[in-house]
Design a protein around this nucleic acid. Structure first.
Lengths: 210, 210
DNA sequence: CTCTTTCTTTAGCGGTTGCTACAGAAAGAC
DNA sequence: GTCTTTCTGTAGCAACCGCTAAAGAAAGAG
């Protein structure tokens, strides 16, 4: 049933090329990476790029998906699986300290830093990443609110503010990683950040909430 | 003694034009703002821009200076004048909540967000802002270390990590402001952030240190 | 007035941008 | 082998990039 692909086969590995494009976008951002930069990084010519990935914007969107799949799925996983919101965020911050300073890869988080400086005509690219970031914070907020409802976190906890605080630290850590902070420093930052969290009511979890 | 200026006088106000350029850079970043964008925002033609400000990079540097003078001098002032490092940072974070969300102005902090996505050939612009950010953190670190030495903060306080934590929150707040967080939310973030700070030893100040 | 100085304007430089038409190359179908 | 399909490389499109030469306009000096 599987009829063989007709015509001349592609001479490059699509996944590898996408990975190279992703790293270029990760390091310099959407607007700052030109098609010439991409074809150099991916080691293919422009027509091959356009045939395989559409246009620059579509390639970027696919690169974002690849980034999420490779380096950010742990976020959702951690938030969903950890027994409490506090434990989840603690792990999240420490995992960020690691993933933002991986050797041989660009610093920081692509979702945070790849579309900060955008011209007017690519403002929708910036908007898309902004919505991803805010969705992440909303996700953390729901996790916190569940723990508040379950009595794990104090009833007076402002779930929204605590979630935004957590997102603020995460986004600041990305910037710090790009500015040269190493993993150990970011781990120390994560430890400090967790001391602002309200204490948990021991002996209870909200793992059934969500 | 004051001989009058010869030749045709400038038909625009240099400071006003610089202010417009600064806001354009503030909102979109160095690379994403073209000369055409600038001449439109400043309401002058390109040769007038080049005659008055040199080239794009020089104009950006002057815009950064103008930004610091208008919106960031309070930082150094606060750090130098507040009786303790803790009090200084507390004021700093709340002032940031205000200045990052001023109505009618771009969101966030120019020093943090105006050179995040840079092409290779303008990497020195990014480097210059990065050094400003790290110098700010080093300044906070010295203020903390002085309080530790004076016994105001616990002896075991890691001044470097606490300073980087503070910078992380400040930079995250800028990102949050750009992502839509309002002043009240950022103030709540600032309050959370301060709860990670170690307690002060009451009845003592380090106002003589520095 | 003329002369000099400095600004403003028009017009356009060489280079780069994202993107593509077109011809040639490499595969399967027959 | 030929035909069809699909990818690759060359070469180049219109539009924009940062920047500037050249000419005209507006001021003071004489």
């Amino acid at each position: 049933m599987a009829t063989k692909q007709r015509g001349r086969p592609r001479s490059f590995d699509r996944e590898t090329a996408l990975e190279q494009a992703m790293q270029a976008f990760w390091e310099h951002g959407y607007d700052a990476v030109s098609i010439a930069d991409l074809t150099r990084a991916m080691d293919i010519k422009a027509p091959s790029l356009y045939a395989a990935f559409g246009d620059k914007r579509t390639l970027f969107e696919e690169a974002v998906e690849a980034y999420v799949h490779s380096y950010a799925v742990f976020t959702v996983k951690t938030l969903a699986e950890a027994p409490t919101a506090r434990g989840a965020v603690d792990r999240l911050l420490h995992e960020a300290a690691v993933s933002h300073t991986l050797p041989g890869l660009p610093r920081g988080c692509l979702l945070i830093s790849a579309a900060t400086n955008c011209s007017e005509q690519s403002s929708d690219v910036a908007e898309a990443l902004k919505e991803r970031r805010n969705a992440g914070i909303a996700f953390i907020e729901r996790r916190i609110a569940a723990d508040v409802a379950a009595g794990v976190l104090p009833a007076e906890t402002d779930a929204r503010a605590l979630a935004v605080y957590t997102g603020t630290v995460l986004q600041g850590m990305s910037q710090q990683a790009r500015d040269g902070a190493d993993r150990a420093t970011l781990e120390a930052v994560a430890d400090f950040a967790m001391q602002a969290w309200p204490p948990e009511h021991a002996g209870e979890t909200s793992s059934d909430a969500g």
